[in-house]
Every structure is written in structure tokens, then in C-alpha cells.
Amino acid sequence: MASRRRTEPAARTEAARTEAARTEAARPSPFAVELRAVRRTYGRGDAAVHALRGVDLALARGSFTAVMGPSGSGKSTFLQCAAGLDRPSAGQVLLGGEDITGLSENRLTKLRRSRIGFVFQSFNLLPSLTVQQNVLLPQRLAGRRPDRRRAAELLARVGLERHGRRRPGQLSGGQQQRVAIARALITDPEVIFADEPTGALDTGTAREVLGLLRHAVDALGATAVMVTHDPVAASYADRVVFLADGALAGELTRPDPTTVADRMVALTASTAGPGRLGAAA
């Protein structure tokens, strides 16, 4: 009888731990994206390129983060690993608390189509489709019924409500990037990844596009992660994260263009010179 009394508390304790673990697993993560000790190496031996060297970073939901660094710092590799476009050599990438590192290519493809939006420097619009059809494309690829009303609403948000039937070639570069932002938002993604989204635009148009990304975060609750080399573009973010030689090299909150530019000048100077090997863009 005494032995039975001793085991019952232990059983209750174990049950409590199990229930606590289930509760923790069910609780939504406060982070949209997490990188845990992420490494990415290309090649082997003396020819190996260490693009990322153990990056630890957590990005809160509903935040706008800019990623900057000198050429060869690992910015593009960071974005590709965080977005599930490339697999880390080591470490973990989590999207909304879910570890996506070991997912099959098919599951990664489905995840990118339904939970992630992309905006690229080159727009990546299909010239044979109309503007509205380009916006609706992610829904079609995700196997969803095209929501033309939602597409019209997003085109109105980006100032293109009268351009839905046009082809991308009939639009300016800034207008095409607006279409790309509407396309990125059509599936209500958890995260929008933007890779130099203003690199091909003039200053005035770039500011309009950045304002739309800022609006997506502030008004629509999106999370945005933007790789950029432009201090003005970075100043639209809540936080700027700096990379150098594949590792984190500091950050700024509430950035302004001058402070960002000064930090980039110092960072570039510190990483310049002979003997700097093994990093990638």
C-alpha cells in the first residue's frame, strides 16, 4: 500500500508535465521567424564558402525588419534560408513556431505558397497574364479558389484599381512592383520576404513602395523582412539587423538614414582588406 501511495504522486507529476508540454506546444509563438544557430556552407575543404556562421535571430510577429551588410556578408543566403528557399547546413529555421528545416520539398513548396509572400527586385511578373491574374496566381498555385474581390481590393490599396486588365509590360517599374506587393498579400501570408524591392526604382517611386510595405505591417498585421543596401529604405523598418562575414554584427531600432549609413560605412571598413575569405552575398 505504501509503495502504491509513493507512485501515485509521481504519476500525477508526469501527467502534469505532459499537459504543460501540450499547452506550450499549442500556444502560438510570438515570433514569425526564428533562426537558431543557422549555418550555411557551400562546397568542401579549402574551397568551402561559409555563407552563414551560426546565426541566432528571432523576428516578432507584426514587425518590419531590414537586413543589411557589406557585399558578401550573407544577406541573400539569410533570406533564402529564412524563407525556406534554401536549406541550412546546420541549425533550425522556424516559421510561426514550426520547425521547417527538415520538411520535404513538397511540403516546403506548399508552405511557401500558403504562408509566405515574396517581393523581388525584378518583380517576377508573368508577362502573358493580366495584372489581376498575376495577383491571383499564388492562390491558384496553392489550390485555392481565386478571390477576384480580394484581388481588386488589394489593387485598390496599391493604387492600381483601374489596371487589373492590363499586362505588366504596359506598366511602369513602380507600378509593376506595386502589383508584386498585391500578389504577395493575396494569400494573407504570415511573412513577406522582400529582396532589394526598391533596387530598380527611382527615389520617389521607391518611397511609395516602401510606404506600401510599411502599411502592410501597420494596417494589415503582416510581418516583413527586407534585404536592402539602401539606408533610406532601411529607415522604414522597425529594426535593422547587420550581417558581416556570415555572422550577426549588431542592430539598430528606430533607425534613421544617417545612423544606418554611418553604421554601414564602419562595418564595411572593418570587413575590408586582404585575407577576407569564405563569405557569400
Rank of each mutant, 00 (worst) to 15 (best):
R162D: 15
A51N: 06
G211Y: 01
E251D: 13
T268V: 11
G246C: 07
D230M: 09
V232W: 01
S128W: 11
P88A: 09
Y42R: 03
L79Q: 06
L212N: 08
T205C: 03
T65I: 14
L136F: 03
G143Y: 00
V260F: 06
D245L: 12
I116N: 05
P127V: 09
R166T: 02
R214G: 12
L59Y: 00
G199N: 05
T259R: 13
S89H: 03
D218Q: 13
A182S: 07
L220Y: 02
A25F: 10
A206L: 04
A219N: 12
F64G: 06
V260Q: 07
A216I: 05
R207S: 15
A219C: 09
F123A: 10
V119N: 05
S71V: 05
R276P: 00
R157S: 10
R112W: 06
A237F: 07
G69H: 03
E19F: 03
P138V: 05
R107M: 11
A222R: 15
R165A: 14
R144C: 06
V49F: 04
A156L: 02
R150D: 04
F242V: 04
A194N: 01
Q132G: 10
T109F: 01
L212D: 08
A233I: 02
A280M: 08
P9E: 12
L213N: 01
L220V: 09
T198L: 07
M226G: 01
R140K: 14
P257I: 01
R5Y: 14
L201E: 10
S270H: 09
D46E: 13
T18I: 08
G96D: 09
D256T: 07
V232C: 02
P274G: 11
G250S: 04
